[in-house]
């Protein structure tokens, strides 16, 4: 178990800057999740920590060691890949034991460690099978088994659940969470799935175009996003942003000036009336999801607005639907910079 410190980290591929001035501290035992859209550099950042990519400049520290010039095997890390990366010609047992064999761990100790990992991950009946004869979830468990058996200082996960179906993803997500609680290990996890990020993380790092947009706890990011990108990236459906033109007279009073955007999360919006509504919207269509409706609207400026409503919205006489939210759930951002206005 060790902390990870990234200082002024840069990574270029030729003239393309993939990571720009990354500064980040991940505490020992913390579950840190990197999220961001495709191409934001989250996997490159993880691979730079693993030593699978050389950094262009800056430092990577794991524990007290500067590991920039260390090979992956000397960094005390283990990694679970999106594709599982199991060795197809080896049995489950040999896959799990692979790193221990290379490290020339004595046979008895090796057998004990593999047995322990197999027991913990319920892989005991599968030890003699080849990866081709396993289901997706079983393969992922073998990949996790291979990573825990060496007692690394830091666990790295590169989108480990994205190849699984929805139901299995939920199960495996829970298992990874339990694994973290049990091992109390430092884990760094890359995903583009914000539900995984919100449910697993102690700390979320939101990346965009190689830059860290915000670091914080899931609740921080949800309740106090630093900018419009984070505000719209965290939460599903994404946060609605309104300019003053979209707002009613009452809504305009919530803005300090016309250069500010008002943000409302779909799940915090509720149907109101002409007098109390903050926004007046033209309904377009709605999706009935049983428990609630996803109601789609068009704002005065032509933007799509989504609200999660527990009752079907009925337009007023003017054909508009008026929505509101409680004051504490309102977010304000500068229209030009996108930054949060206190």
């Amino acid at each position: 178990m060790a902390n990870v410190r990234l200082t002024n980290l840069n990574k270029n591929y030729g003239s393309v800057e993939v990571l720009k001035n990354i500064d980040l501290e991940i505490k020992s035992g913390e579950f840190c999740v990197f999220v961001g859209p495709s191409g934001c550099g989250k996997s490159t950042l993880l691979r730079s920590i693993a030593g699978l990519e050389d950094v262009t400049s800056g430092d990577v520290h794991i524990g007290d060691d500067r590991v920039n010039d260390m090979r992956p095997k000397d960094r005390g890390i283990s990694m679970v890949f999106q594709s599982y990366a199991l060795f197809p010609h080896k049995t489950v047992y040999e896959n799990i034991a692979y790193g221990l064999r290379i490290a020339k761990v004595p046979k008895k100790e090796l057998e004990e460690k593999v047995a322990e990992a197999a027991r913990a991950l319920k892989l005991e009946p599968l030890l003699q099978r080849k990866p081709a004869n396993l289901s997706g979830g079983q393969r992922q468990r073998v990949a996790i088994g291979r990573s825990i058996v060496r007692n690394p200082r830091v666990f790295l996960f590169d989108e480990p659940l994205s190849n699984l179906d929805a139901a299995l993803r939920v199960t495996m997500r829970t298992e990874i969470g339990q694994l973290h609680s049990r091992l109390d290990a430092t884990m760094i996890y890359v995903t583009h799935d914000q539900v995984e990020a919100m449910t697993l993380a102690d700390k979320i790092v939101v990346l965009r175009d190689g830059i860290i947009e915000q670091v914080g706890t899931p609740v921080d990011l949800y309740e106090r996003p630093d900018n419009t990108f984070v505000a719209q990236f965290i939460g599903s459906p994404k946060m609605n942003l309104f300019t003053s033109e979209d707002l009613t007279e009452k809504g305009k009073k919530c803005l300090p000036d016309a250069d500010t955007l008002l943000g409302m999360r779909p799940e915090h919006m509720r149907v109101s009336d002409m007098k109390n509504g903050l926004v007046a919207l033209t309904p377009t269509h709605s999706e009935n999801l049983g428990e609630y409706f996803l109601a789609y609207f068009e704002s005065a400026t032509g933007e799509e607005v989504i609200a999660k409503l527990y009752e079907k919205s009925v337009p007023d006489a003017d054909g508009k639907v008026y929505l509101e939210t409680i004051k504490s759930r309102l977010h304000r951002f500068n229209k030009e910079t996108g930054l949060r206005v206190a």
Partner: peptide, 22 residues
């Protein structure tokens, strides 16, 4: 797949072990 090599390198393999063993 490159991931196979990467997984082996993370597990401590040398290029020779990746060639010979995988």
């Amino acid at each position: 797949p490159r991931d196979l090599d990467d997984a082996a390198y993370v597990e401590g393999a040398s290029p020779w072990q990746v060639y010979w063993g995988l």
